[in-house]
């Protein structure tokens, strides 16, 4: 029997209660939210539960929401997949804006090791307990987190590139 979204919701709700909320079906993916404290337990539960069996971590990435309220400035998104039933879910965890921190899941899924490093590299999210949390795609000397929304696309301090020669001004007018 195929695994239905409502079954997932019941099981997760039974185990985690109010720590998992906002269940909804977004197109073909069933998704819900969780909290920073219960995320590792939730992922472990989803992976090991004999009915749910979300044994594959498809994707992990971060999002920056500078316009949200302070406690929801960053989000870490987990995509998990159950290949037996061919069911995908998405879990979103919002984190506060200053010193964003969340527990690592790299001891549950080894594939998340580099994905967490990528999220750290671009958003500065601290994955507590990660074995080697350092930059992965950018150079080690970099001090900012370039995928945050406030980070400009081009370096405004560049002197080798005069906008006049490209027929534009800095604000594109």
């Amino acid at each position: 029997m195929a695994l239905e979204a409502i079954q997932i919701q019941e099981k997760v709700n039974e185990a985690f209660g109010i720590n998992v909320f906002n269940y909804n079906q977004e197109k073909d993916i069933f998704s819900f939210e969780s909290t920073t404290d219960s995320i590792t337990a939730l992922i472990l539960f989803l992976k090991n539960d004999p009915d749910l069996r979300f044994h594959f971590l498809t994707d992990l990435c971060a999002i920056h929401y500078p316009d949200n309220e302070f406690s929801r400035q960053f989000a870490v998104v987990y995509h998990m997949h159950n290949w037996y039933e061919n069911k995908r879910i998405k879990i979103k965890v919002y984190i506060d804006g200053e010193n964003p921190k969340i527990k690592t899941i790299s001891n549950i899924f080894r594939s998340s090791n580099w994905m967490e490093r990528e999220a750290y590299d671009f958003y500065g999210i601290d994955f507590i307990g990660h074995p080697q949390l350092k930059r992965i795609l950018n150079m080690d000397e970099m001090i900012s987190f370039p995928m945050r929304k406030e980070f400009p696309m081009e370096d405004s301090g560049r002197t080798d590139k005069d906008d006049r020669f490209f027929g534009r001004t800095t604000d594109n007018y």
């Binding site: 977004e26 197109k27 993916i29 998704s31 498809t58 994707d59 990435c61 999002i63 998104v77 995509h79 995908r88 998405k90």
Partner: peptide, 20 residues
């Protein structure tokens, strides 16, 4: 306004696009 994940089988495996 939506959040979409679409996977395709790329040459090396599941190539996914997560679009917000």
């Amino acid at each position: 306004v939506a959040e979409i994940y679409h996977p395709v089988e790329g040459g090396n495996g599941e190539l996914g696009f997560y679009l917000v």
